[in-house]
Amino acid sequence: MRILLNIIWLVLSGLWMAIAYCVAGLICCVLIVTIPFGIASFRIANYALWPFGRTVVDRRDAGAGSAVGNVIWIIVAGWWLALGHVVTGIAQCVTIIGIPLGIANFKLVPISLLPLGREIVDVP
Rank of each mutant, 00 (worst) to 15 (best):
V87P: 06
A45I: 04
V68E: 07
V33E: 11
R54C: 07
L12K: 12
M17W: 02
L108A: 08
T95V: 08
T55G: 07
I72L: 14
A24E: 14
V68Q: 08
S66W: 00
Q92M: 12
A62N: 11
W79K: 09
L116H: 03
G117P: 15
V57M: 08
I97V: 15
V57P: 07
V87I: 14
Q92W: 04
V121D: 11
G65H: 02
V33N: 12
G38A: 10
G25H: 03
V57E: 10
A91Q: 05
I103G: 02
I39E: 01
L31A: 04
L113K: 01
I27Y: 08
N70A: 03
A18P: 11
P110Q: 02
C22T: 08
G102V: 00
V86A: 14
V57D: 05
A77E: 05
A45L: 09
I35N: 05
W16Q: 12
L12E: 02
C93L: 12
S13R: 11
A104F: 06
Q92K: 08
A24S: 15
L26F: 14
G102N: 01
T88Y: 04
S13P: 06
V121L: 13
R59K: 15
P115V: 00
I44H: 05
G69R: 06
W73A: 06
S41Q: 07
A77R: 09
R54M: 09
N46F: 07
I75N: 00
T34W: 03
I19V: 15
G89Y: 10
L101C: 11
Y21P: 00
R60Y: 09
I96E: 01
L31G: 00
T34E: 07
C93Q: 10
S41C: 14
R60G: 15
C29V: 13
G53I: 07
L116F: 01
G25T: 00
R43E: 03
I72W: 04
A62I: 11
P115E: 10
V56L: 13
L113D: 01
R60K: 13
R60S: 14
C22N: 07
N105C: 12
L10A: 15
L26W: 13
L31S: 11
W80I: 04
Y21A: 05
I19R: 15
V56S: 10
N70R: 04
V76Q: 01
G89I: 11
P100H: 08
Y47C: 12
G25C: 02
N46T: 10
R118D: 04
N46Y: 01
I19D: 14
L10K: 14
Y47E: 08
A18M: 08
W9K: 02
G53Y: 10
I99V: 14
F106Q: 10
D61G: 03
P115T: 05
A48I: 01
I75A: 04
L10D: 06
A77M: 10
N46P: 00
W50F: 15
G25Q: 00
